[in-house]
Simulated scan of single mutants.
Amino acid sequence: MAESSETLLETPLASLHSELGGRMVPFAGYSMPVQYAAGIMQEHLHCRAAASLFDVSHMGQAELVGEGAAAALERVTPADVQALKPGRQRYGLLMTEAGGILDDFMVANLGDRLFLVVNASRKHVDLPYIQAALPAGVTLKPLPDRALVALQGPQAVAAIATLAPGIADLTFMGIGSFEIAGVKALVSRSGYTGEDGVEMSVPAEQAERFARALLALPGVQPAGLGARDSLRLEAGLCLYGNDIDETTSPVEAALTWSIGKRRRTEWNFPGAGRVREELANGAKRLRVGIKPEGRQPARGHTPIHAPGGAAIGEITSGGFGPTLNGPMAMGYVAPEHAADGTALDLMVRGKALAARVAPTPFVPHRYAR
């Protein structure tokens, strides 16, 4: 059933989206801009060429405070949180006891506390799950009164460094506090577009003033969910609910790099049994990049067959890559069909569309390492 507009939440930038001509759609319980007047293709290409501003305030933000907070968080994730140095951020997975992925998230060490960002569609699940695992003395503090905006693209850091020069000194996955246009912001050099850029957490009541100051910078234009999705797919990045979910393991999803080396010797995280077994004996399916031949894209849930043969998997994300200038997809196939270059048939509306397994990212990452 479609969500009625009455039930949708709004971000602190709702009125700004309206003013900018954003076309609003329901997403993860929020009214979010899918695109502005320029359109998804132009917004995508602008992000690759200059700098684009995204509202990601629907994401869940929280702090973990107290002695032993890092060790406590390791009760629900295989990431090595204790080795995370102050001023650094890391990608991690929240795991179920059955070895599935409850969510993917970001964790940063702010010195006196940990800062977490979880997916909008999962925050109502994630935060209680983390809370339930905490020992006495460690407190989880949700931050519903904060907005989150991402400035992404090759000119993003140079543009924002005119307002806060210190941001240029951050390297990829670095994080720090800065005053930008009179607003105190927590800034990480990260994002989900494959481009260099920053994500910035600011007080909700100052978010609109903050966003306007960024949009006034040379080369910065607003971009919506449509461009965010095509950018992350070109970058080969997973979207929770599409490419990963509670049925998917880190091994199947090709996310074992997020499991810390120490954690692979301790095996004391939820789902460790399944992960260990699949690392030793192989998973039943594997996430791969897929390039359809020709120009027609294949969308999520498209069946994948061996050429002229049986079903071997399914596409989880698919679309047209404006920078790639062609169709692209990700999906799961049986391991014997997962090697780069393997021929596939994508069953689009009952017709076989020729495709091949392709390495990801489809467009090279340009992080500031």
Score class of each variant (00 low, 15 high):
Ala235Gln: 03
Leu237Thr: 00
Tyr240Glu: 00
Asn242Glu: 07
Ile244Thr: 14
Ile244Pro: 08
Ile244Phe: 14
Ile244Ser: 02
Asp245Ile: 15
Glu246Val: 10
Thr247Phe: 06
Thr248Val: 12
Thr248Trp: 08
Thr248Gly: 02
Ser249Met: 07
Pro250His: 13
Pro250Asn: 10
Val251Trp: 08
Val251Arg: 12
Glu252Cys: 04
Ala253Tyr: 09
Ala253Phe: 07
Ala254Pro: 00
Ala254Gly: 09
Leu255Ile: 07
Leu255Ala: 11
Thr256Val: 14
Trp257Phe: 10
Ile259Pro: 00
Gly260Glu: 00
Lys261Phe: 07
Lys261Ile: 00
Arg264Leu: 11
Arg264Thr: 00
Glu266Gly: 01
Trp267Pro: 02
Trp267Asn: 04
Trp267Leu: 11
Asn268Arg: 09
Asn268Met: 03
Asn268Leu: 06
Phe269Trp: 09
Gly271Gln: 05
Gly271Asn: 08
Gly271Ser: 07
Ala272Tyr: 07
Gly273Asp: 13
Gly273Glu: 15
Arg274His: 11
Val275Ala: 15
Arg276Trp: 11
Arg276Asp: 10
Glu277Tyr: 14
Glu278Trp: 11
Leu279Glu: 09
Ala280Asp: 09
Ala280Arg: 12
Asn281Ser: 14
Gly282His: 11
Gly282Thr: 05
Ala283Ser: 15
Arg287Pro: 01
Arg287Gly: 00
Val288Arg: 08
Val288Leu: 08
Val288Tyr: 04
Ile290Lys: 04
Ile290Val: 14
Pro292Phe: 08
Glu293Pro: 02
Glu293Gly: 00
Gly294Gln: 03
Arg295Gly: 02
Arg295Leu: 01
Gln296Arg: 14
Pro297Tyr: 15
Pro297Arg: 15
Ala298Trp: 11
Ala298Cys: 08
Arg299Leu: 15
Arg299Val: 03
Arg299Cys: 00
Gly300Asn: 13
His301Arg: 14
Thr302Asp: 04
Ile304Asn: 02
Ile304Gln: 03
His305Ser: 02
Ala306His: 12
Ala306Arg: 15
Pro307Lys: 08
Pro307Val: 11
